[in-house]
Design a protein around this nucleic acid. Structure first.
Lengths: 129, 129
DNA sequence: CAAACCTTGACATGCTCGTGCTAAGGTCTG
DNA sequence: CAGACCTTAGCACGAGCATGTCAAGGTTTG
């Protein structure tokens, strides 16, 4: 049989067999199948699985996010529309600082933030409505 | 006072005040603040909020996904690494069809899929490991 | 052919997201 | 100055994600 079966792949990649099926479902790594339906992981898939793990850890991503990046790749219209919306951003207001953003990102995983001094006194440059 | 307050903005955009705060926290639309800390939504913000709503509906996105797109924009390294990983995709295996992908996407919101005929007999072109 | 392994469900748990609502306390305006 | 409105913090809750595990049934192989 050509390629590792799911449990073998699990051992060498560090993912659980359960997660390998999940990852396949999300569309990120889909191994070939034997005539009888067994998943067969070849070297490329194994490599992808390992680098995927690194990717997630390094940038603190979840599978859904990588899956979304994949979707962006596949749907040009979606990518363009989102890009357009983001670019319409009239310039990030001064009071939304990088640390605000970072803090939000951290909060996702560290549920410990205690006090957060509110940044006051912004510029107030804005046309009337 | 220059700009709409949060509840006024809520009325004209269709979002709830609660959601406007949430959207700000996620980093998507951050209004200016009055000297005393009141949020002040000007025409650009109001417009962005309306188009955001359309964007989400049209592509069936959630705020987290748009937020992630924003992150991709701001973190070139992240964008490059993900792109690299996606491109390493040795060619989408034949048995992962577009309908598989679509079905997954749909499942996210329609919890009704009943039977799913398994696509059998893939090509089996794979080097040994 | 029996043991070991695979497949697709399905149930279960713990955590995050989207959202509403309430509380305690400033701010604005008639 | 009283009532209406804003601010942040926090509880609540249903829905979805990331995982594990178990069940019922094919496949491979010694």
């Amino acid at each position: 049989m050509d390629g590792l079966t799911i449990n073998q792949a699990a051992v060498t990649t560090g993912w659980s067999a359960r997660m390998l099926r999940y990852i396949e479902r999300v569309g990120l790594v889909a191994p070939a199948r034997s005539a009888s339906g067994y998943r067969l992981y070849g070297p490329p898939e194994l490599q992808r699985l390992r680098t995927l793990r690194e990717l997630l850890e390094r940038f603190d991503l979840d599978l859904g996010e990588v899956g979304f990046a994949l979707r962006l790749d596949r749907e040009p219209e979606l990518r363009e529309e989102i890009q357009a919306w983001l670019l319409a951003q009239p310039v990030r207001p001064e009071h939304v600082t990088d640390s605000d953003w970072l803090r939000f990102e951290q909060d996702k995983h560290e549920r410990l933030l205690s006090t957060a001094g509110p940044a006051a006194n912004p510029s107030l440059i804005m046309e009337t409505v």
